[in-house]
Simulated assay, not measured.
Amino acid sequence: MAGSKFAYVKNFELPDPLLPGTFMVLRVDGHAFHRLSEEHNFTKPNDERALQLMDHAARDVMNEFKDIVLAFGESDEFSFLFRKSTTLYNRRQAKILTTVTSIFTSSYVYNWPKYLPNTPLKYPPSFDGRIVLYPSAKDVRNYFSWRQADTHINNLYNTVFWALVLQGGETTTQAHATLRGTVSSTKHEMMFSRFGINYTDISPRYRKGSILVRMEIPPEPEADVEPASGKISEVIESGADPTSKPKTAKKNVKIRTFIELLHCDLIGDEFWEARPHLLSE
């Protein structure tokens, strides 16, 4: 396209490359989702349908960007881990951030009727996003451990809080006052003694969050097929030494992957040791 006298304005666009050789984590977070859950009568303390919708949107993002190897979601947020070697959009921060956030948001809105068919959207939900770079695999593990620990802390509080409101007859203000200053053991005892709730019996989806992992499908072994004559003919290039071994053409094997949904512990070593490719260089 030919330039014009106005093209100089492009010089004001500054480059925003992300530091190479670092792990990239992009987190999308619901904007004002407290209001959204109230306006659309989400089940308290957890709405299975809404969480499944979040998982769907995250899966759509991972299907679009193959360099995302891991995603973790809780409540109204999802964190995506890119391969350390990713060169997506030349690692341009604004391009990556806006595209991922917009795909997640559009998927969430588009698939809303599938998960909440009897709850029409009253207004468009929105998400914000941020990218954080981490220098080491240890930092990445600690980041996801932080998010899963946050999931447990929030869910424990919300579970006993809504038990006090919905079963105990307290107002939200009274429930907050009842729980002020309590430790985890006190919350567990309160749930069990007053409401018969054993926290360990609650779905791991709520206690552990959602983990989406990109797993590789091992390639199928190629069958050895011999010609009908039983002889193998070799094509020798012109000018080649007939006594030398023929060159074997290398095939570019395209690795296929699938996305697995888990609700398990990722703070311990077992999860990461079973999936070393997630943090490979």
Rank of each mutant, 00 (worst) to 15 (best):
S244T: 01
P204D: 07
P221L: 03
I217V: 13
V213K: 09
I211T: 15
P221H: 01
I232T: 15
I211W: 10
V235R: 13
E226L: 15
I211N: 07
L212P: 06
V213S: 04
R207I: 02
S233D: 13
P221Q: 00
I232G: 08
A240W: 05
S238K: 06
E220R: 14
G239N: 12
E216V: 07
K231S: 12
E220S: 15
P218F: 14
A223I: 07
E237C: 04
K231A: 11
S244W: 02
V225R: 11
S203I: 04
K231R: 15
S244K: 09
R214N: 01
P204M: 08
S233A: 14
A240N: 10
D241G: 10
G239T: 11
P227V: 07
G209D: 08
D241H: 11
K245N: 09
P242M: 06
P219Y: 07
I211F: 06
R214C: 03
D241M: 08
P227S: 01
I217S: 01
P218N: 14
G239Q: 12
A228K: 02
G230M: 10
P218K: 12
P204E: 10
R205F: 03
V213I: 13
S244V: 00
S229T: 09
V235C: 04
G239R: 10
K245Y: 10
Y206I: 06
G239K: 12
P219I: 03
P227L: 01
A228H: 00
A240R: 15
I232K: 15
I236M: 04
E216I: 03
I211A: 06
G230R: 10
G239H: 13
S233K: 14
R207P: 00
E237S: 10
M215C: 11
S244R: 13
M215G: 04
S233H: 14
S203L: 10
P246Y: 00
S238E: 11
P246S: 04
E226W: 15
D224Q: 02
I232D: 07
P242Q: 07
Y206C: 06
E237V: 06
V225L: 11
G230I: 09
S233M: 10
E222V: 07
